[in-house]
């Protein structure tokens, strides 16, 4: 159900896009959106359209490149690929997220113990 799905934190979508491109190689917008949905186990509430703001932001920062190409089923689509700078950024941001979620986990588990 819609209500039970997670709202995306600001800035997290950019990181997901980078990771998807790093893992999957060049993808078009629809492909990226689908991969994120699938990878998150359909937990994420994603209006697929919002991905385009993220894409243009990443592109302007020079972390991804874009090129018109032909999809597997012979459709013209814009393909995005991660750049070297993008990979560096991904490593940095992923580490940051890892730390953040570790801390969150620890804090939350502590408060659960305290409750007992």
């Amino acid at each position: 159900m819609g209500e039970s799905k997670l709202d995306l934190l600001q800035g997290t979508l950019d990181l997901m896009v980078l990771k998807t491109l790093a893992a999957m190689g060049p993808q078009h917008g629809y492909g990226i959106a689908r991969r994120i949905e699938q990878a998150s186990g359909d937990e994420v509430l994603l209006n697929q359209g919002t991905i385009y703001a993220s894409l243009v932001r990443l592109q302007q920062r020079g972390w991804i490149d874009a090129e018109w190409g032909i999809s597997d089923n012979n459709r013209k689509a814009k393909f995005y690929s991660i750049t070297r700078g993008g990979r560096k950024q991904l490593t940095k941001d992923a580490a940051h997220w890892q730390r953040l979620s570790d801390v969150m986990l620890r804090v939350l588990s502590m408060s659960a113990e305290g409750g007992n």
């Binding site: 209006n47 919002t50 385009y52 703001a53 243009v56 932001r57």
Partner: peptide, 14 residues
């Protein structure tokens, strides 16, 4: 989602 909303967001971002 909303096509116009997506366009607006993209324009704002770019």
């Amino acid at each position: 989602g909303g096509i116009d909303l997506a366009k607006d967001q993209q324009r704002a971002a770019r």
